[in-house]
Design a protein around this nucleic acid. Sequence first.
DNA 1: ACCTGAACACCGTTCAAGT
DNA 2: ACCTGAACACCGTTCAAGT
Lengths: 238, 238
Amino acid sequence: MDVQCTLYDLRCTLSSVSSDTREPLGRQAIVARAIAIADERGVDALSMRILARELGYEVMSLYNHIRNKDEVLSAMVDAVAAEVPTASVADDPLTAARTLAMETRAALVRHPWAASLWLTQWPGPARVGHMEQLLATFSETDMPPDVAHLAFHAVNNHVIGYTLQEQAMAYEAGDAGDEIARRFLDGIAAEEFPHTAAHVRQHLAGETGSSFEVVLDLILDGLARMHRADSSAVGTDR
Amino acid sequence: MDVQCTLYDLRCTLSSVSSDTREPLGRQAIVARAIAIADERGVDALSMRILARELGYEVMSLYNHIRNKDEVLSAMVDAVAAEVPTASVADDPLTAARTLAMETRAALVRHPWAASLWLTQWPGPARVGHMEQLLATFSETDMPPDVAHLAFHAVNNHVIGYTLQEQAMAYEAGDAGDEIARRFLDGIAAEEFPHTAAHVRQHLAGETGSSFEVVLDLILDGLARMHRADSSAVGTDR
DNA sequence: ACCTGAACACCGTTCAAGT
DNA sequence: ACCTGAACACCGTTCAAGT
């Protein structure tokens, strides 16, 4: 027993002196590595076993620091939510909402796996903070509460829905996102589906740049108009 | 060899006469059963092994009729797309687009697993038909092509984004969708996140019924206004 | 032509044992 | 306190053998 202790201590000493290249395991290190893997190779390539190997540990060691894989995924999205900068207080509420939407989208584009997890994973603190912020900006407008409620969902849906849709399009293609559109075009009978063929061709021609912003503005303008119509009570709308 | 053939034939005869309760295997039967399982227990509960067992076959038999699981999933969404009734030709284009959006949403609500597959799975014939139809209705308006292109994405994003978002909310709760909202409310500090707490309370109070339609109309109105502004060239907009 | 047993290379997670 | 070997109950898919 004396011997055992000595050997153990020796090993600890040795490893602390040098030789042990791996960083200490912990929730933060795990999540950071998971994000790196998902960024590089997609969420599908993220397994607990691979995650552990890349960290230099065995699979089971992870469970000393996190409850299960779901907790890792939750923490990953929350990290993305934390990347979204808080909107400037100086701006008027609606443009603050606009830039918040743009920044959220930017974060989701930086981490293409995040949009779908955003929907399915239980919201962590950063996500709740993000909600709070968007809701706060709408409450600073003079929208009535029910319109503000609506505004939150409309903007949120657009940000996530648009990004998901876009990423689904580019999913299988490598950097050349066109590849997939071209393959799709080849697959359908252009004479039977003329509008679809034309639509895809518009995409290939790149005539579809900033539609995220255009639709976002359309929604925000619609909301502004809505509450203006509301507050002017009797409609001298036109 | 003679004996073998006889035995085999005998078994075939017997089974065709009675005894063999299971229906013949085929692409259609497989997809139908897969949809039934996903409807009842969710997509996560759908494995090839379970699917085969419920059909009365071994797993590997499935691969005589379909290439892989992905093909099954693709066929499942396409079946949902096929459920969406074609819009009446009598309506004016924008209301036709509106009812098409509503019907699509209804189909996605009937099959809660379908919305996320809609985004990730390669579109089959019914999905292409669905695209074609929505694009066709917008092209029948007098929108310029670029606005029609935008309209397609805006409406599509809303339908899928809204439904996904909504289902994410109700995901873990059983029939009582409130359960999850209440749990969320308990989890956050109401004084730190007042707007978020208020928002969730609005949901619990049920003050949030038809927001899908309201936002849809907001988008469609915005689009109509947009092309009206476009076509009247010089803006006598107000 | 269609069904299937055995096998392969994976999963996430638990539990008891190690230091 | 933290790490880990062995094991459990799953996956999707292939291949060669059966009738």
